[in-house]
Computed example of a mutant assay.
Amino acid sequence: MAKKKKLIELDEKTLEILEKEAKANNRSLKNYIENHFENLARQLAEPSVEYKAMMDDLLERQEKGTLKTIPIDEIRKKYGISRNIVD
């Protein structure tokens, strides 16, 4: 597939974080960012057959009342997450 160039601007703190992560993964920053965006694009594309089947099963169990869930606060406590990491 042909590749295109696109200029993006990121703040210094974001670049610092990404550079550290790239280094930890033995990648260049450019390669790390390109790989991340390619993976993200695949995730945003049509879901896989397996994923659709899993979701259908979860929805069916939810409708039947047999789906067990865990509150997000319990998950955060279990893994030592004190805040929403997406903020």
Rank of each mutant, 00 (worst) to 15 (best):
M1E: 06
K3F: 02
K4Q: 05
K4N: 02
K5S: 11
K5I: 03
K5F: 11
K6D: 01
L7G: 03
I8Y: 03
I8L: 15
E9G: 06
E9P: 01
E9I: 14
D11W: 04
E12P: 04
E12L: 11
K13L: 13
K13T: 13
K13N: 10
L15Q: 14
L15S: 07
I17F: 14
I17W: 13
I17H: 14
L18W: 06
L18N: 01
E19C: 10
K20G: 05
E21S: 08
A22M: 07
A22I: 03
A24I: 01
N25I: 00
N26K: 13
N26S: 06
S28H: 06
S28I: 05
S28E: 09
S28D: 04
L29A: 06
L29W: 03
K30C: 13
N31K: 15
Y32G: 09
Y32I: 14
I33P: 00
E34W: 02
E34S: 09
E34R: 06
E34N: 13
N35A: 13
H36D: 07
H36C: 10
F37E: 06
N39L: 14
N39M: 14
N39D: 14
L40E: 10
L40C: 04
R42P: 04
R42G: 04
R42Q: 14
R42V: 13
R42E: 14
R42W: 05
Q43T: 11
Q43A: 15
Q43Y: 06
Q43H: 12
L44C: 05
L44E: 14
L44W: 08
L44Q: 12
L44I: 08
A45D: 12
E46R: 08
E46F: 02
E46L: 09
P47S: 04
S48Y: 02
V49R: 09
V49L: 08
Y51K: 13
K52E: 09
A53R: 13
A53N: 09
A53E: 15
M54R: 14
M54I: 10
M54N: 10
M54V: 12
M54D: 12
M55F: 03
M55W: 07
M55P: 00
L58W: 10
L58E: 04
L58C: 06
L59D: 10
E60A: 11
R61Y: 01
Q62S: 07
K64W: 03
G65H: 00
L67V: 00
K68E: 10
K68V: 12
K68G: 03
T69Q: 07
T69M: 13
I70T: 15
P71A: 10
P71T: 00
I72Q: 09
D73C: 02
E74T: 05
E74Y: 05
E74V: 05
E74L: 08
E74P: 02
E74S: 07
I75D: 00
I75G: 02
I75A: 02
R76P: 01
R76D: 08
K77I: 02
Y79C: 00
G80T: 03
I81E: 03
R83E: 11
N84K: 01
N84A: 00
I85E: 15
V86H: 14
V86G: 12
D87K: 08
D87S: 06
D87T: 06
